[in-house]
Amino acid sequence: MGHATKEGTFGYLKKFGNYSKDFYRFNGELFFPSLGIGTYKAEPYKEDNYIINYAEAIKTALRRGINLIDTAINYRYQMSEREIAEALNEMIQSGEIKREEVIIASKGGFIPLDFPFPDNPYGWIQENMIDQGLASKEEIVIDQHCMTPEYLRWSCEQSLRNLEIDTIDIFYLHNPETQLGYIDQATFYERIEAAFALFEELRSEKKIVSYGIAAWNGFLYEADHLEYVSLGKVADIAQRVGGENHGFKYIQSPFNLAKPHAYGYANQECEDGLFYPLMHACARYGLTYIGSSSLLQTNLFKRPFASNVAELMKTGELSDVASALQFARSAGGISALFGAVDPSHVVDNAFLGYLPEASVESVNTLMRGAYAV
């Protein structure tokens, strides 16, 4: 079924001519919507993970101008990927959407187990990973994370099976900083290099188009923190492994009103010896930044926002959710991700397509006084 293309994503955006002209952004390869839909569900042991289904929300997103779909093999024990396949297959077969119009991102690194949750997860790891030669016990960190090339290849190929596609557009190494504290820095970057070498192989096999790192706090910590990841070192590894035409193109990390560090905290050293916020450092290294956790898994809404937030974001009488998403998509990343199972929530969020993004001055006003914790 191919993969997302410049022509396909441009053709897709033309269906939404009523949207604000800045709702879509071009990174030189693809046209991205400034909002993307994610399929992460917190608290995976809860029963509702066994009854929810993302398929209707995915279809609604694609019908409302949101053609960036973000997932990971470990989300809900591989079920999120399978539900994306359910939605895509229906829409592609009906002619409502084309594969080349949709940007699909997934991740490998965490051990996914399988649905339904196995009675003995340690037995699943032994049988499906160690016995299959994907990793040794020592290469699996805290029974949940692995970066061996053998495991990452299996993870990517299993994601392709789950998604029922030929090629993943963006394949992320998922929260590699999970291993720091259990392995030393030298070993950590050696494992990154081996992972990137594998990703270049997967590119040559047309199983992925580009790759990146999706981190939680790794790129946002201060430089002396145990779990800090240097973007400069990672970029150097990509050059060494893949040459000038390497496929390392994307960084994903949280960005929201409560966690704005990627925009305002200068912690990443660049080639000039100066420190820059992550978004700015990405631009200097030619990487596309995508913001995750735009709503902080709804933890932003424990109390109402101050009235000036909606005023600055030009979200008027819309909800605090709309104001939070407007902030997240207006700071410089190419897209901001939100999770939604209820299709009506997707409709509400997609209404931002009609609004221009917030100004730099408004974003900076909200950022004023923000600091890293």
Rank of each mutant, 00 (worst) to 15 (best):
G2S: 01
H3R: 08
A4G: 13
K6C: 14
K6S: 09
T9C: 09
G11M: 04
G11D: 07
F16Q: 04
S20P: 10
F23A: 03
R25I: 01
F31Y: 15
F32P: 02
S34W: 02
L35Q: 00
D48T: 15
T60M: 12
I66M: 14
Y75T: 14
Y77V: 04
Q78E: 14
M79K: 14
R82M: 09
I84N: 00
A87D: 00
G95D: 11
I97E: 00
I97H: 00
E100R: 00
E100H: 06
K107I: 05
P118S: 05
P121D: 10
E127P: 09
I130R: 13
K137D: 11
K137Y: 15
E139P: 01
V141Y: 13
D143K: 14
L152R: 01
W154R: 05
W154I: 05
C156P: 03
R161H: 02
L173E: 09
H174V: 02
T178G: 02
G181W: 09
F188N: 00
E190L: 12
K206C: 11
I208P: 02
Y211D: 07
A214C: 09
E222V: 14
S230P: 12
K233F: 10
G243D: 02
G243Y: 00
G243W: 01
E244F: 12
N245G: 10
H246P: 12
H246W: 01
G247E: 03
F248H: 05
P254W: 06
N256F: 08
K259S: 08
E271Y: 09
D272N: 11
F275Y: 08
P277I: 03
L278F: 04
M279H: 02
R284S: 14
R284G: 13
Y285A: 10
T288W: 07
G291L: 07
Q297H: 14
T298I: 07
R303T: 15
R303K: 15
R303W: 14
P304L: 10
A310L: 06
M313H: 02
A322E: 04
A322C: 13
S323C: 15
F327H: 00
S335G: 07
G339P: 02
G339Q: 11
A340L: 04
S344P: 09
H345Y: 12
D348C: 08
A350G: 00
E357F: 01
V360S: 13
S362M: 13
T365D: 12
T365W: 11
R368C: 10
G369A: 13
Y371P: 06
Y371M: 12
A372W: 07
